[in-house]
Amino acid sequence: MSGGGISDLDKNRALAEWLEYRLRQVRARIRELEVKEQQEERARQRARAEQSWKIQPQRGGMPAMLHRGGCGLFKSELGFLDRQDAMIALAEPDIEACGICRPETGLAE
C-alpha cells in the first residue's frame, strides 16, 4: 500500500465479499421464485381438478361412485373425466353420485 491508498489485494477482497453477498441474494430470490412457481402449479392443478370429475371404482359391495375432481373422499391416481364423460358415467346404473361433493350439480351447468 503506497501513498495511503487501498491496495489491489484489499480491493479484490472487498469485491469478493460484495460478489458473495450478491450471490446469496440471488440464490435467495431463486428459492422464492421456485416456491412461488410450485404454489402456482398446485393452484393450476386444483383448478383443473375442480373443473373435472373422477370415478371411484366399485369395492367391497359398494357401487362405483362419481366425484368432483377436487373431492377429498376419493384420491385418484388416474386421470380425470371431462364433462361429457362424467355425464355418460352418471347415466350408468351401477355408478352413483357422491353425496358430499354432488358432482351432478357441475354437470347441469
Rank of each mutant, 00 (worst) to 15 (best):
L19F: 09
R59S: 05
A47L: 02
E32L: 02
A47K: 07
K36W: 02
Q56T: 00
L66C: 02
Q38C: 00
Q39H: 04
I55T: 07
R48V: 03
V35M: 01
Q51V: 03
A64S: 11
H67D: 05
R42Y: 08
W53V: 09
Q45D: 12
R29C: 07
A49M: 04
F80Q: 01
E37K: 13
R31W: 03
S76H: 02
F80C: 00
E50T: 11
C71K: 11
D82M: 05
G70W: 02
R24D: 11
D82I: 09
A43I: 00
E41H: 03
L81Y: 03
Q56D: 08
R83E: 15
G72N: 11
K54V: 09
M62G: 00
M62L: 04
Q58R: 10
A28L: 11
E77R: 13
D82Q: 08
R29K: 09
R83A: 15
S76A: 12
E40G: 01
Q58W: 03
D82R: 02
I30G: 02
G72F: 01
L23M: 08
L33D: 15
D82W: 07
K75Q: 11
R42A: 15
I55K: 04
W53F: 13
E41F: 02
R44Y: 04
E41T: 10
Q58L: 02
A64V: 12
A43M: 02
F80W: 10
E41G: 03
R68C: 08
R44D: 07
W18N: 09
G60D: 15
G72P: 00
G61N: 08
L23S: 04
G60H: 13
E50N: 05
Q45C: 02
Q39M: 05
F80E: 02
A28M: 06
E77K: 14
L73N: 15
R68A: 06
M62A: 09
G61T: 13
Q25E: 08
E77Y: 06
W53D: 00
W18E: 15
P63M: 03
L23D: 10
Q56K: 12
P57H: 01
E32G: 01
L81K: 05
